Amino acid sequence: MKFSVFTASTPDWTPAQAITALAGQGWDGIEWRLLDQQPSSTGEPGFWAGNLATLPLAGIEGEVAGIAALTRDAGLEMSGVAGYARADERDDVERVLRATAALGAPQARVAMPRSDTAEAYPALFERTREDVAWAASLAASLGIKALVELHHETITPSASAARRLLEGLDPEHVGVIHDLGNLVIEGRERHTAAFELLGDYLAHVHVKNARWVTDGERTPAGSLRWRHEWAPLRDGQADVGQYLTDLREHGYDGWVTLEDFSTDLPSRSAPATTSPT
């Protein structure tokens, strides 16, 4: 297996600083966050807004050569691109996939629709199958792979749902991101069974951790209210060590990308860099 870091989890670093730091720490690669994000409401960099290590989708065509050169010159590979364009947003999906190919990255995430929309789930699922088939066809023409992530509150929270969505599509050009932390929240199946079910569609792995907490509040019916939050790798409800062992015993030898959105530890200081990027 090879190990990379998703830049959503390095919000205080510019792209050049992220490259410098991760190469210096001995990581094999980097996974770029790609979207037009909102500014931070506090003015401070955050995971989801004002993230300094995020590549903008607008104008990405003019950025790819420089980013690719910086990454390559530091000795890092690109495990992939984490796009946020939803499957039915075909113009943006196309930009994400073309940017991924231009960067020299092997694969890119295509976001799935939420499961709590007004549209009936069966109709939404079938429409998304058509969108994913289109994305897979485009990915094939570009020599890359389109990825569907196991993500809570979307139509693919589990391996079973993702396998059903992709059934019949070519696993050379479409696959699944198995995400340990998301599965704490929704969709967990026994990992080895999930790996076997996904088969050749198991294309990529994200590792983070989460936990369920309560402040003692109860619903009007008297049930205890619980909410989920991100946790450091060793402090969440998932057994990360066992998960990596399960992957290895299954024969998985692809990328494992670290995502850490917990705030238990102090923010990372920015490394020195000679690039203004």
Rank of each mutant, 00 (worst) to 15 (best):
S4A: 13
F6L: 11
A8I: 15
A8H: 11
T14E: 15
T20M: 13
A21Y: 03
A21E: 08
Q25I: 05
Q25H: 11
G26M: 12
S40M: 10
G50E: 07
N51G: 02
L52P: 13
L52E: 07
A53V: 09
P56D: 09
G59P: 09
G59N: 02
D73P: 12
R86K: 13
R95V: 15
R95M: 14
R98A: 03
A99W: 00
A101Q: 15
A101G: 15
A101P: 01
A102P: 01
A108P: 05
R109W: 14
A118K: 08
A118D: 12
A120T: 14
Y121Q: 06
F125W: 12
E126T: 04
R127H: 05
A133I: 00
W134I: 04
A135V: 05
S137R: 11
L138P: 10
A139H: 10
K145I: 01
L150A: 07
H151L: 12
H152T: 11
I155P: 02
I155K: 02
T156I: 02
P157G: 03
S160G: 09
S160V: 04
L166D: 05
E167W: 12
L169E: 02
L169R: 01
D170H: 04
P171I: 07
P171W: 02
G175F: 13
G175P: 11
V176A: 01
H178C: 04
N182Q: 14
L183K: 08
V184S: 08
I185G: 06
E186Y: 12
R190C: 09
R190H: 12
A193L: 14
A193C: 06
A194E: 13
L198N: 00
L202M: 02
L202A: 01
A203T: 08
V205N: 06
V207E: 07
A210Q: 15
V213L: 14
R218A: 05
P220Y: 06
W226Y: 03
E229R: 14
A231I: 03
D235R: 15
G236H: 05
A238V: 06
G241W: 10
T245H: 11
D246H: 07
E249Y: 13
Y252F: 13
G254I: 10
G254Y: 12
W255I: 08
E259D: 15
D260T: 03
D260K: 12
F261S: 00
T263V: 14
D264S: 11
R268G: 06
R268T: 04
T274D: 09
S275M: 04
